[in-house]
Design a protein around this nucleic acid. Structure first.
Lengths: 362, 362
DNA sequence: CGACAGTGTGGGAGCGCTCCCACATTAGAT
DNA sequence: ATCTAATGTGGGAGCGCTCCCACACTGTCG
């Protein structure tokens, strides 16, 4: 039949061809410095001539490292959140991983059963580390993985003081920026549609909203706060409620673009004009924002950058060795000179800045 | 200090505990029928007691199968296409793979260099098969993978007569359904904004549009056809052009929702009302469609189902053995007679039906 | 002129499985 | 009674690597 497995040359064959021993070939391939120039060129040539590619399974078995990491996305969230979010994350992770020659294993976890299967999977030593997206407040998975001895980095955090390493965006800053912008535009009766308050991200954005009001010297008014659930329908309902309670509101800060779309619909129903009567600001700067009518002012999160940062942190932790688990052990790695973004490089938690994108809705 | 690699029990230990040989444990784990009931229970118990999980690397090395497949997404496309598309695809693939206990390896390919690296990767025998998303007309990758002896399934096809196994949606039917619907709504001057015509998907949708006109007894008019590029801006430009050439048009069929959003904006600029003056239909039924104003009538593709089908086909081909399923070796590509639409079950090409979702824009 | 560090280097000893051959054991056929 | 087949079973022989020990060879120092 086809020579799918018989055809590929092995390390041994390369060694024979180069006239050296297996050990030397291995050293050359893995970039060890303790190889003579003569041997190195001979091996490099043999590799090229034979088209040799190291067998990954053998490598993993012998060396107990797989050069792969898993990215786990809870399926339920994938529907809730604006989907481009995850694609952006994946893209960021992927870019960074390509640079370090690791592979990305994507796992969508739907059910509890699948979650358990995933733990089994981890136990089968198929990955060197795990990236976790949008973890819920009470999810024990991050800790479990840690117990297995595998490095983890989460996207977002479960609580304010999160023990597991994570990369988050500055959600408080997002709320503040939105409110500050609305105030600058002359609005003073600013309402907000929040996400589900059992999620840290929703609480943080609400906190930012409140801080923004305080900084502007505006009095808080609980009547101007309504809870949504990150869906369009939820945003619509919450906005209707707000209009009922506070007909005089002149701005709405929705904690996501999708909810802002719902708010837009509710405002239209109520005959309010945007931005004439009511200014509108969302969060995410998703494609939806650009396509809305009028285009939506939104707070952008550096999603791709978050993905990259996560991958970088995980890679560092993997390389940093299993024993250095504790602190920001900096093993001679070329530290990025004062990271362009917030948060110290090498730290176990990182909060990236958000950015307001102004469009016609405000 | 928990032992990451030392702690895990091996097959040998399970064998000892169950009082049987390694071979028997292996048979039980892999579900071989040639095991006595007695041995089976003993092994099952030992496995449970020790919390044994087979080491995947060892399995792959000894058995030369990895239980993983790769899904390749060209990065350029990921930006162009409505992104939810890929998430839907990933979801479908993931669901089906979970059922067959395989793992999903996601690869975003950005550059030519990365593409080569990916080929290297495949040569390292890390996957049992490959899924290819949105392949361009002249991409040699599918054939290359076939030459490596790896099963491949593509999403969409490069040309009408595609030699490599694929799963596509009925793009011709999509165009026809859109036109038929518009005709039923009393429209007769129906324009279309196409995708880039070097892509088969764009040509097929245009073909469906033309077929639809013919079936309705409407005369074709090239002035009613303008090329877009699957972006919003492209849709906007193309629509402006159409309005200039044929101010009397009363409907637009855009070959994607995103382009429909662009068309919507152009129509608004020109003072046309939707659907009053001009009816609008898109393709994809993406979240954008629901959020547009008015909500967009759109032809839905069964994306998730496409993902599932692809995974199923690939799994079958992997299981079917390298010798079956017609030699991928055939150089030059066999001219395949296969009928255009309605692919047979078990066939190497499959075209799934699309479905019109009517909303207020038409 | 020995003792002693370096450097490179070969190759043995696994890593934890699957494959498969040889050997029971049993039951049926002759 | 012997022969054959069917059924279970143990365990050797790898799969293709990495790790690491032992052994050259160089020089350098006391």
């Amino acid at each position: 039949m086809n020579g799918r497995q018989n055809g590929r040359p092995t390390l041994e064959q390369v060694a024979a061809r180069a006239g050296v021993g297996r050990g030397t070939v291995s050293r050359v391939i893995n970039g060890s410095p303790r190889v003579s120039e003569r041997a190195r060129t001979a091996v490099t040539r043999a590799v090229a001539e034979l088209g040799y590619v190291p067998n990954q399974a053998a490598r993993a078995l012998a060396g107990s490292r797989t050069d792969a990491i898993a990215l786990v996305i809870p399926e339920a969230e994938a529907r809730l959140f604006a989907e481009p979010y995850f694609l952006g994350l994946i893209r960021g992770v992927s870019i960074e991983l390509a640079a370090s020659d690791k592979q990305l294993l994507l796992t969508l976890v739907r059910t509890e059963q699948e979650r358990q299967r995933f733990e089994q999977y981890l136990a089968a030593q198929r990955v060197d580390g795990v990236l976790l997206a949008s973890v819920h407040g009470d999810d024990p998975l991050p800790d479990r993985i840690g117990e297995l001895g595998l490095p983890v980095v989460m996207n977002g955090r479960r609580t304010e003081a999160e023990p597991v390493p994570y990369v988050d965006s500055d959600n408080i800053g997002a709320g503040r920026a939105a409110v500050a912008h609305l105030v600058a535009r002359g609005r003073s009766r600013i309402a907000t549609v929040t996400g589900p308050l059992d999620m840290y991200v929703a609480r943080a954005r609400l906190g930012g909203y409140r801080a923004g009001l305080a900084e502007a010297g505006l009095a808080p008014d609980e009547g101007l706060v309504a809870a949504g659930d990150f869906t369009e329908e939820g945003g619509r309902r919450a906005t209707r409620l707000l209009l009922e309670r506070r007909p005089g509101l002149d701005a709405v800060f929705a904690a996501s673009d999708v909810m802002a779309a719902g708010a837009r619909a509710a405002l239209r129903e109520a005959g309010r004009r945007v931005p004439g009567d009511v200014a509108l600001v969302g969060v995410d700067d998703s494609p939806v924002a650009r396509l809305m009518d009028p285009p939506l002012t939104s707070v952008r999160q550096p999603i791709e950058e978050m993905g990259r940062t996560m991958a970088r942190m995980l890679t560092a932790e993997i390389a940093g060795g299993p024993e250095a688990a504790g602190g920001p052990e900096t093993p001679g790695g070329p530290e990025v000179p004062g990271g362009p973004e917030g948060g110290r490089a090498g730290s176990r938690r990182r909060v990236l800045p958000t950015e307001l994108v102004v469009r016609e809705s405000s």
